[in-house]
Design a protein around this nucleic acid. Sequence first.
DNA 1: CCGCGAAGATTGCGGCAGCATGACGGGGAC
DNA 2: GTCCCCGTCATGCTGCCGCAATCTTCGCGG
Lengths: 223, 223
Amino acid sequence: MRLLLIEDERELADALSAALSKHGIVTDHTTHLADAFELTRQNTYDAILLDRRLPDGEGLTFIPMLRRTGTDAPVIVLTARNEPLERVEGLDVGADDYLGKPFLVDELMARLRAVLRRPPSLAELQITVGRMVIDPLHLSVTVASTPLDLPRRELLVLVALAKRKDKTVLRSTLEAAVYNYEEEIQSNALDAHISRLRKRLLDAGAGVAIHNIRGVGYLLREE
Amino acid sequence: MRLLLIEDERELADALSAALSKHGIVTDHTTHLADAFELTRQNTYDAILLDRRLPDGEGLTFIPMLRRTGTDAPVIVLTARNEPLERVEGLDVGADDYLGKPFLVDELMARLRAVLRRPPSLAELQITVGRMVIDPLHLSVTVASTPLDLPRRELLVLVALAKRKDKTVLRSTLEAAVYNYEEEIQSNALDAHISRLRKRLLDAGAGVAIHNIRGVGYLLREE
DNA sequence: CCGCGAAGATTGCGGCAGCATGACGGGGAC
DNA sequence: GTCCCCGTCATGCTGCCGCAATCTTCGCGG
């Protein structure tokens, strides 16, 4: 589990990080909202601990920003501003819980658990084709709910096709999905991947077919 | 919106019902757990407000009963028993929030809104794989109901894998689950953890296998 | 309907990236 | 001190994947 801690009191932050790490929680720490925003764009956190009074502004303003950018990690506000009306304010801008300082680490842990007792973050974008379910975010493929493990390049090809299922995907698009700039290919490596992928999907009984559109690209659809 | 209020102090209950109805909330009220249980079987509530000290028992015992019968409505505990450790206790049996008496109706409303914003709490409290049961929130592992204690990093790896059992977990995801951005690793530390974890699970007879998907990540499944 | 060229399919091979594992040692906890 | 977690290195091995050679399919024009 990985948390983002936004807190400008250095000592409290260090103590908290240490305490949390004893519970097996990995904590990233920052003191400014601007940095926090950057971090949430780069990483995915299971939860966010947020102070209200911060050097570059009121912590609560951070919550709507987060939500607008699609981060749905639960936010727990940790603050000395603990009047009932302040708590209402915090919860109503989208905080998931609100805990007044000082607090016991045990209570924080309990509230964390309460808040995390919910489905894994973000909409599980999954694509279903034939008997196959593809999760492009986690790069996982299952056929009839049993996992199918594919070599990396074949997996990338399949995901690229699945994202545009029933539509043609340009050959160049597929190449871009599998290779970066440095990796030049000067042979029919892509064709080879397609071929091996077809065989694997057939063996697994995936119920899909990869069609070729001559001179253009490929297309994935149920068969 | 329809609430179930379980509270034996008649005056408080009446006052609350009145206040809630001003917010357009329909409240069913009962004073006993036995009746409450019946009501939840017959109706579907959006949320449940629960007192701890009730004529026929400790209110908290109600929560596991609810969950076992498939009711996933959020529960807010309202009680005079408001010591930090009592709050921990409440949250850990499955309450979604915990509010000490006396409280402002406005704060109750705010916490209600916060709790209702969250998707239904379907998250598994425990994950079973092979002969092993994993509690990701408390970070505990048992094999055939005897506890297994693992070193911290190996535990984190295992939990991350268990949360997506039978599905691939990206190498980068595992690294993020175990290390924060300050702790960089420049070697095969993760591989080492996996290797040691495998050995430990084998020795313990966990009945699981950690499978590698070359170039992608790892996958936990029963064997 | 046939022939031809180009695009695609398939398969074997070899190099090497990526993984598994054991050993070692520093360092933190008790 | 003593234990053991955990990061690092070295070594061996597996199998992915780029390449190329060969065969098949497709589309077009006559």
